[in-house]
Simulated scan of single mutants.
Amino acid sequence: MASSPNKFLLILAIATILLPSIAVATEYVVGGDAIGWKPNFNYTDWAKDKMFMVGDTLVFKYDPTKHDVYKVNGTAFSECVTPPGAEVLKSGNDIVTLKSAGNKWYLCSTLGHCANGQKLKITVMDMMSAPQPSPNAAPPNVFVGFFQIFVSLAIVILLSSYAT
């Protein structure tokens, strides 16, 4: 059976190899820190260059005396209405964890706000549906791969020196 230092080094080697490949969830402040959730802002432009993944979070920051956030369906989003039973958030610092892939729609129910742009539509992807890089895309970061190999080899050498 491996000694305690050997177990630690083995776990460290495995973590060094596997951890960079595990996706880390991203937190998005809707509209950005400076803007937040308010009317007269183009949330479509804000969202267009972002890739929302299952596990990511949206943070809606706003004045709760003036705004709210409703989770709605596509029809309600298009018509700027809040259907009965729709989930409403109203703390002023609402965190929404994206738990499933697909389209998600959010809007403010304050009169005129949705019509003035205070609404957000995003598409959430899971790891299986994420787009593959185009043939002209930059190559993956080779440094990370070499670093993983280097650290793994160093740990193997350390383990072999402990074994002798």
Rank of each mutant, 00 (worst) to 15 (best):
69 V>G: 00
76 A>C: 06
137 A>M: 12
85 G>Y: 02
119 K>I: 00
50 K>R: 09
121 K>L: 02
136 N>P: 04
151 V>R: 07
116 N>H: 14
96 V>H: 06
134 S>D: 11
139 P>K: 15
102 G>A: 01
39 P>Q: 11
134 S>F: 12
114 C>D: 05
146 F>Y: 15
92 G>A: 05
67 H>I: 00
70 Y>M: 08
66 K>G: 03
65 T>R: 13
59 V>N: 03
102 G>N: 05
48 K>G: 01
119 K>P: 00
93 N>F: 06
96 V>S: 01
103 N>V: 09
92 G>S: 05
63 D>V: 03
91 S>W: 04
132 Q>G: 12
96 V>E: 06
145 G>L: 13
42 N>V: 07
135 P>K: 11
108 C>D: 01
91 S>D: 10
46 W>R: 04
39 P>D: 08
115 A>V: 14
149 I>W: 15
99 K>D: 04
39 P>E: 11
76 A>Y: 04
50 K>M: 06
36 G>N: 07
64 P>S: 03
77 F>T: 01
117 G>P: 04
99 K>P: 00
83 P>L: 06
64 P>D: 06
69 V>D: 00
133 P>I: 02
84 P>T: 08
134 S>P: 12
112 G>D: 12
64 P>E: 01
38 K>A: 08
106 Y>I: 00
36 G>H: 06
125 M>H: 15
127 M>P: 13
84 P>R: 14
62 Y>G: 01
86 A>W: 11
103 N>E: 09
36 G>P: 06
65 T>C: 00
122 I>L: 05
34 A>N: 13
37 W>K: 08
61 K>P: 00
131 P>R: 11
56 D>G: 01
66 K>R: 13
140 P>T: 15
49 D>G: 10
73 N>I: 05
142 V>R: 15
104 K>T: 09
37 W>Q: 06
107 L>P: 08
115 A>M: 13
35 I>S: 07
103 N>T: 09
44 T>F: 09
63 D>T: 05
57 T>V: 04
147 F>N: 15
123 T>E: 14
143 F>L: 15
79 E>A: 14
143 F>Q: 13
94 D>N: 03
76 A>M: 05
120 L>Q: 00
100 S>Q: 14
89 L>V: 02
121 K>T: 13
43 Y>A: 02
137 A>T: 14
60 F>M: 00
49 D>F: 05
65 T>A: 09
